[in-house]
Write a protein that binds this DNA or RNA. Sequence first.
DNA 1: ATGGCAGATGTTATCTGA
Length: 290
Amino acid sequence: MTMQLSLNPLVRELHVCSKGFNLLTFTNKILYMKIATYNVNGVNGRLPVLLRWLQESMPDIVCLQELKAPQEKFPLQDIENAGYKAIWHGQKSWNGVAILSRGEAPQEIRRVLPGDPEDLHSRYIEAKVNGLTIGCLYLPNGNPAPGPKFDYKLRWFERLTKHAAELYRSGERVILTGDYNVMPTELDVYKPERWVDDALFRPETRAAFHKLLEQGWTDAIRKLYPGEVIYTFWDYFRNAYGRNAGLRIDHFLLSADVDKDLVIAGVDKFVRGWEKTSDHAPVWIELKDA
DNA sequence: ATGGCAGATGTTATCTGA
């Protein structure tokens, strides 16, 4: 017996009906998987917002950035109570990344981006989950630019690009997602002329992102919404969210055999309107027939 | 062009973010 899932409202209905199960399955076959990324800007301060969003959005896999919590202060009990297994790499005050899964526990592959033993920032964690290799990343901001922080950003980008090439060649189904701190094109930034000298938009930064894409990766949001203004970040100043003065800096990069299963994607922009919210909104994709 | 806001640390402010 088979069931064809062609319409997303049907998928959503089945997903709600399957509450309590780790993955939506039918005759033991995975029909649908939702994967999200969310820069929470402080996982403990953001906990009520994070838990509310998890309950409403019900992603199967979640990548978090900017935990801003040491390893021992990760709110594991609350995350588990919400139905998720988790691995994370914390750091006092800043950075910090995590991978959550409603299905099998994420099997950690690495928690450091290769290439610089002296880089102690918690900005990368990678795991195998549900047959996917998930790289969760928080690329350095790089401001002020030029300067040592910008140099660090570009070096980190080079390490990511080198590692991404190996992942792409591995033949695994790979997703590299997180806060890239890059607006890839002028379409991805409100008033681009004001950002040309910023570390998130400088020519070197955009060139690094495009060089990464040239390995074959698909920018999932841009593929599904070509030409549309879509933002994932609005700063806390000057009513940026109310004016939709945002940036698109949180991205999903998919290897070719993940891209072929891409059904839909979106930004949970409404979360940015909640009280005590992050300056980023969650971004998600949905894959069919893994 | 500037400074505005927010989180963490742990002070009566500093650092960082984007």
